[in-house]
């Protein structure tokens, strides 16, 4: 299953999931831009390999273990010990994703996916074309803005900057951000202070 292309895209594997989101795990050494806050990821839903849940990474946690706890209390830690701890020991990294849409082979859809991904399913970074198509409509904004368990304003701003940088040509980015800003103005016209803050966050 894993080939060179997916190696580049893979974010982790599903640990636990629901229709509203899922957590996936990976090794600390693999953490890079794919795992950034606000990145678009996707995972096949249970028992279908042609339907993918699309989500946003809203939290990345590096867990501890007894040795880490002991090391942080030590007065000095040698560099080779630190490198050994980081590179050779299996420090679990947990990534939390909120579902904002799904796709099949024809279209992308805003909203929650029909079923959650199965455990250990591959979680991959969305291709730029998926991101581009999915973000060309702004229907997922409401889902993010109304999500109680996530830092919604910062998450949406990060997602838009991620999409702008990854999925749009330089000359398209300003227009994308202005279109996104207008959608936010429509959604948040009742709450001008929140709107002003969010527009500051997404300013290109």
């Amino acid at each position: 299953m894993v080939n060179g292309y997916l190696e580049d895209l893979i974010v982790g594997r599903v640990l636990r999931s629901s229709t509203t989101g899922f957590d996936c795990g990976t090794h600390s050494t693999r953490l890079d831009d794919r795992h950034s806050f606000g990145a678009f990821v996707e995972a096949p839903i249970a028992n279908r390999d042609d339907v993918y849940a699309i989500g946003l990474i809203y939290a990345v946690r590096v867990d501890d273990d007894p040795l880490v706890s002991e090391l942080v209390r030590a007065e000095t830690v040698e560099d080779n010990v630190l490198r050994d701890q980081r590179e050779n020991r299996l420090i679990p990294v947990e990534i939390s994703v909120i579902n904002i849409g799904w796709r099949n082979t024809e279209r992308t859809f805003p909203g929650l996916p029909p079923r959650p991904p199965m455990s250990l399913a591959d979680v991959t970074a969305c291709d730029r074309l998926v991101v581009s198509h999915f973000t060309s409509k702004h229907d997922f904004f409401r889902l993010v803005l109304n999500a109680a368990e996530v830092p919604s304003d910062d998450l949406l701003a990060a997602a838009l900057h991620y999409a702008s940088a990854r999925a749009y040509e330089p000359d398209e980015r300003e227009t994308f951000m202005i279109d996104s800003g207008r959608k936010l103005v429509r959604l948040l016209s009742h709450d001008l202070k929140r709107l002003a803050h969010l527009l500051e966050l997404i300013r290109p």
Partner: peptide
């Protein structure tokens, strides 16, 4: 298959 991208026709922003 995300490798098969040729058939995609995406709307451009704006």
């Amino acid at each position: 298959n995300p490798n098969d991208l040729d058939a995609w026709e995406l709307p451009r922003p704006g």
